[in-house]
Design a protein around this nucleic acid. Structure first.
Lengths: 237, 237
DNA sequence: TGCGTAATATTGTATGATTATATGCTTGTC
DNA sequence: GACAAGCATATAATCATACAATATTACGCA
């Protein structure tokens, strides 16, 4: 089921798509803007028109741009963007994401993850639980200052979504993962790691292990609340 | 903010991407399968290699396939697919979606929409409310047997998500919309329209109008429960 | 049997030419 | 002066072909 195949080496079209994507979600290019023509743009980038066009196709597939003959390729309004697309999310955090966006993302997590934890408590297999345990141990062993520790953190949350046995829900894993990784990055930038997040995680784990759905839901809600307040972000409005 | 521009005329790469996409999500082509080489495939379809490649780029952007030199283009495992992508969702419902998938989608709605309704009750503008009112009137005027009535139904749910003032949440609108439209289609196929769904909707509307967050949450939960039981789908497992 | 190495099939990239499309202007009409 | 119809044209869409890069596979060697 897992694919241990190494990720393909980066190709030009992907590289360009990423570059343009970052510029778009980062606000350097705004909705309504019209990109340069294919010939001009590809020359400017020093690549062929073929590669450039394929990059545009990628962006169009994610709803970032829309191109039509004679009119050119223009950036679509934000509400047409597939904000939950893993690449778009990654590109968003490549730059300096809007504070409100992070708050929104956490709000979404507070909707998704407690429910997922409750489902997971009911439906988990022993293998799911083992995966969570392993991830938690990884967090403890390395700490969130270490890259491996952060990866374990993501693995924990991902394992819960997987254990919920709901495919569309699982598809949100990358969304959640993006928020998770940003959290710790953000906190470390502020040099404020006031609280050890591990006990919160252990409580969630224990509830899922005990197949206590309501407990898992509550524990996950607490975990998220605390994580958000730790970030000391401005509230809504 | 809305874009009243007519949708671009269908192009070849989009058409082919759609065709292949439907075959993939429909299970005709399975994860691990390797597609024919570019030259062979494009000849078979009667198109140029360029157009075929752009179609593949679209599918790759949505996580359906992955191509590498010498190895060919292969269909990725399901857990890599962006199931929430609007196109993938549409393609899924183009064929005969798995019953379990529909159940999962409703489960996701039961997580998302009640929370969205609660947020909407707190944050809605008068304009949001007017949009919901209009949509509801449209449902009543045309009924769900009419295409315009179904469109109004989707508009209602979309308006609630929009009123929740949370961008990532709003991005799930197409996901929810797909489930909404499928619901009525499914029910009508069974020739069973046992209950008028309008009162359920009115209750949600009233709670949001009154800025009653908890009431909105409950009303939406009820609405979804009833809609699901109406479909008479088999339960989990 | 294992490892290194090279042959080779396949995708990736580049270039140039042609076609189709919708825009925006121009013209004509009221 | 405003508006509608029609056309010229810029632009993306498609096609065709050639060449480069890459990773798999098979082969040969230790």
């Amino acid at each position: 089921m897992d694919d241990d195949r190494p990720p393909p080496a980066p190709r030009i079209h992907g590289t360009i798509a990423r570059k343009l994507g970052i510029e778009i979600v980062g606000g350097i290019r705004k909705p309504g803007d019209i990109l340069d023509g294919e010939i001009e743009a590809s020359e400017e980038l020093g690549i062929s028109r073929t590669a450039y066009r394929e990059a545009i196709r990628i962006l169009a597939a994610k709803g970032l741009v829309e191109s039509r003959p004679k009119a050119g390729t223009r950036i679509t309004p934000r509400n047409r963007w597939n904000l939950l697309d893993p690449d778009i999310l990654a590109w968003t955090f490549e730059g300096e994401p809007d504070a409100q966006f992070i708050v929104d993302l956490f709000e979404l997590r507070e909707v998704i993850e407690p429910a997922a934890a409750a489902f997971a408590a009911q439906r988990r297999s022993d293998r799911d639980l083992a995966e969570m345990t392993e991830a938690l141990d990884g967090m403890q062993a390395f700490g969130l200052a270490d890259e491996r520790g952060r990866a374990a953190d993501q693995r924990f949350h991902r394992a819960i979504l997987a254990a919920a046995r709901n495919e569309p829900l699982t598809a949100l894993a990358s969304t959640v993962g993006a928020a998770v990784s940003w959290t710790t990055k953000f906190k470390q930038r502020r040099r404020s790691l006031p609280r050890d997040p591990l006990p919160d995680h252990r409580r969630v784990h224990a509830a899922i292990a005990a197949k206590d759905a309501d407990g898992a839901r509550r524990a996950m809600t607490d975990l998220l609340r605390l994580a958000l307040t730790d970030m000391e972000l401005p509230g809504r409005e």
